[in-house]
Design a protein around this nucleic acid. Sequence first.
DNA 1: CGAGTTCTTGACAGTGATCAAGCGACGTGG
DNA 2: CCACGTCGCTTGATCACTGTCAAGAACTCG
Lengths: 218, 218
Amino acid sequence: MGFSPSDLKRLDSIVKTRRRVKQGEQLFSDSDPFTSLYAIRTGFFKTSITADDGREQVIGFQMAGEIVGLDGIMNDAHTCNAVALEDADVCVMPFSNVEELSREFPVLQRHVHKIMSREIVRENEVMMLLGNMRAEERLAAFLLNLFQRLHARGFSQSEVVLRMTREEIGSYLGMKLETVSRTFSKFSDEGIIEVKQRYVHILNPDALKKIFNPRTCT
Amino acid sequence: MGFSPSDLKRLDSIVKTRRRVKQGEQLFSDSDPFTSLYAIRTGFFKTSITADDGREQVIGFQMAGEIVGLDGIMNDAHTCNAVALEDADVCVMPFSNVEELSREFPVLQRHVHKIMSREIVRENEVMMLLGNMRAEERLAAFLLNLFQRLHARGFSQSEVVLRMTREEIGSYLGMKLETVSRTFSKFSDEGIIEVKQRYVHILNPDALKKIFNPRTCT
DNA sequence: CGAGTTCTTGACAGTGATCAAGCGACGTGG
DNA sequence: CCACGTCGCTTGATCACTGTCAAGAACTCG
């Protein structure tokens, strides 16, 4: 990409610190001081915020290649929690280094901006889900998105063992765990998927797409 | 702030282009090429996305001092629409200039990052609203947020003439316009607010806070 | 002043929440 | 290796909140 060896060495310094996070452990939590962004190398995370009265809202599920911690930049303190849903390995990227190198390498600068913009656009889409869609549409969208991301990482596009509970899916999608369970069962009865606890097998992806977006997928 | 006159001149160049947007007109729309961020000088905007089947989701309402267009960075194309809800005046900030000057002035760079992070955090909060809250809580949160922002800009903290319709409020909050109207009426019956069409007068802000967050405001 | 838009309100219906019970899977320790 | 306890999942019955449909009132703007 046109970098000199010394450039590459400096760029590499950003990702040299690693941190392991065991399943169930927090990578960071609400009100922790913000120092770094984290690039997920392996593993699976959920991020969530907690209201004063204790209600939890899952903000997203993150997997290898994705970045967490962007929420902390604003106030130099994190505003959400990141918990590993399976043993994970992350690159710790001190944000001051990221900023320093961004000033030097426009390609990196652009990349950082795109990552933040992508997160904004992703959340816009979630708002559409939560504001306009019904339970079946939400779960269909969730499954399609999850499988698409897994497939991009070389996993099967039709089978998965979920890392999150029904309750966590429900929190993300703005519905109760019972409704998640019932909707899974409904899809199963209709032959669209096969479900057994955490195991999910997509039998008819087109049917899911049709549920997600009735108009365009006729 | 320690800038030389020539620095200031260059920084100023970022905000020299102005654009007027009349009520009802679009500042940009979905799939427009992305070139610039826009800083609102005066006026009031809504941003929204439209699903393939036509359903609209209002993403946010923006007022003086706020930045719109961040969604476009990701793909060099906008992914939402920005419509003026009252005559507006914006600074057009070509994003390539913003990036160039960010490389030169760390203070500006940090500022840009914070703006993007703030937008991410704001959307996290909206997800909490949409995923966990009931109609009354959503509307209370909406009013408190709106008045807080207006007050920070020197407007009354108790009276406002809304710029948006019931339908737009409903879209933002994930509820139907009738529910918005009924909830306004309910607050009015309870003596918490006075409403007449677009005019809203907060009589009892503490009651609103209690509705928004029952636990902490007892 | 009149047409069209926006808002309010009522009656009713439906989706999803709540409450409750039982089942299944998994892990730990005897 | 099996028994048991815990946690997560499924399913049923009922209920409440909000959506839908409808009509009329209030307001806005040409």
